[in-house]
Simulated scan of single mutants.
Amino acid sequence: MNFLDKITGNDMKREMKEFEARAKVLPSEYQAAWKEITSNLWMYSDFTGRNLIPILDSALELLEVTSADGQSVEEVLGNDIKGFCAALVGDEGAKSYRDKWRNQLNKNIARKLGGDLK
């Protein structure tokens, strides 16, 4: 990956297009699950989203393997895809970017007001 691709995000665009091409060959219920997984995982991304690329790749590979085995989406992911995504990023209590920003804002306000927020 060259510097310009990293700055512009072209490397991520290419990888996401590859993911979408791989997802298009999946059965329709798996395609719907993939869309839901991608939409739920983005809230756990860092500023660039590069931390999610290996996670998205693993999730898509799981869908590919299980669809080839003939399993249903519910057997693989269960009924709670949001919980599945939280587990993928590391912890059931994983914080989203909103939680991180809210915590930082609360700390800044507390510091300005002279209090100490932990």
Rank of each mutant, 00 (worst) to 15 (best):
E15D: 09
M1C: 02
G83C: 08
S28G: 09
Q104R: 14
N108S: 14
P54A: 03
F84H: 06
R102W: 08
L4G: 09
M12L: 13
G115E: 14
L60K: 01
N106T: 08
R50G: 11
K82N: 15
K118T: 14
M16V: 04
F19L: 09
L4Y: 12
D99E: 14
A94R: 01
F84P: 00
D91V: 04
A33D: 01
L60Y: 01
P27G: 03
S39C: 05
V76Q: 00
A32P: 01
W101T: 10
N2D: 15
K107V: 11
K24F: 11
K6L: 12
I81R: 03
R102S: 07
E36K: 13
D69G: 04
E29L: 08
A21P: 01
S58T: 07
F3I: 11
M12H: 03
A23P: 03
K118S: 15
M16G: 01
L56T: 02
L52R: 00
I37C: 02
K13P: 07
S96N: 11
K24S: 15
E36H: 10
R98D: 11
L77K: 00
K13T: 15
A87I: 06
F3T: 10
S45Q: 13
A87G: 13
Y44P: 02
A86T: 04
R50Y: 11
S45W: 01
E75L: 03
G114S: 11
T8Y: 04
E64K: 05
D46G: 07
T66N: 11
L52E: 00
E64I: 05
Q31G: 09
S67Q: 00
S45T: 10
G114T: 10
Q71N: 13
M1A: 08
T8N: 05
I7Q: 06
R102C: 06
E64R: 05
K24M: 15
K107E: 09
A68Y: 05
R102Q: 12
S39N: 10
A110I: 04
F47S: 08
M1N: 04
N51H: 08
G70T: 07
Y30S: 02
W101H: 11
S45R: 13
E36I: 05
N108Q: 14
M43V: 14
V25M: 12
K17N: 13
N108G: 14
G90I: 15
D99P: 08
G49M: 04
G114M: 08
N10T: 13
G93I: 06
L4I: 15
E29I: 07
L56N: 02
R111A: 14
R98T: 09
E29A: 12
L26C: 06
D46C: 02
K17R: 14
T48K: 08
E64C: 04
